[in-house]
Computed example of a mutant assay.
Amino acid sequence: MGGDGKVFTLAQVSDHNSRKDCWLIINGKVYDVTKFLEDHPGGDEVLLSATGKDATDDFEDVGHSDSARDMMDKYHVGKIDVSTIPKKTKYKPPKQPHYNQDKTSEFIIKLLQFLVPLAILGLAVGIRIYTKSTIH
């Protein structure tokens, strides 16, 4: 088709999202793949699910052959105005408290928090018993 001069916005391309009218954005170019839907080896659902967004990653992840890439020229209808495509944001994991892989030190602290007061109590009771027994 060869639509080198035409520039489309994402909104314009997104309107073409049905089996009767299907456009894709791949590598900054817009393709009308409506006539190819039935012939696509992966099925038409794959192509329809890639409408309304930049489908470059989807296309590249599959690993299309050189002949498939050459075939794209006949479906080319124009270019995408890249300023209309939202920027991809890098995933940032949520901040979480530090994870202590060595639980031994944590266990020892909790054990001491239990045993030290118990030892002090035992010592106090022992001293009291001892002093009572030595006074009488």
Rank of each mutant, 00 (worst) to 15 (best):
G28Q: 12
N100C: 07
G5T: 13
K79M: 14
P94L: 02
S83F: 04
I135M: 06
I80D: 12
C22P: 14
I127P: 10
D15S: 13
T134N: 11
S133L: 07
T34E: 06
P93N: 05
K87A: 13
C22A: 13
K110S: 07
H136R: 03
V46D: 08
V116N: 09
K35R: 15
Q101L: 04
L112Y: 02
M71E: 05
E106W: 07
D70E: 07
K132H: 04
D44R: 14
Q101V: 03
T9L: 11
V77K: 08
D39M: 06
Y91C: 03
V77W: 08
K74A: 01
I135F: 10
I120A: 13
H98M: 10
Q101W: 11
D73R: 03
G122L: 13
P41A: 01
L37G: 11
D32S: 01
H98V: 14
S49M: 09
S83Y: 04
I108V: 15
S67P: 00
V30S: 04
T131R: 10
K103I: 14
H64T: 00
Y91D: 04
L121V: 14
K29H: 11
S133D: 01
L47H: 04
V13C: 09
D70Q: 06
L118M: 15
L123G: 14
L112H: 00
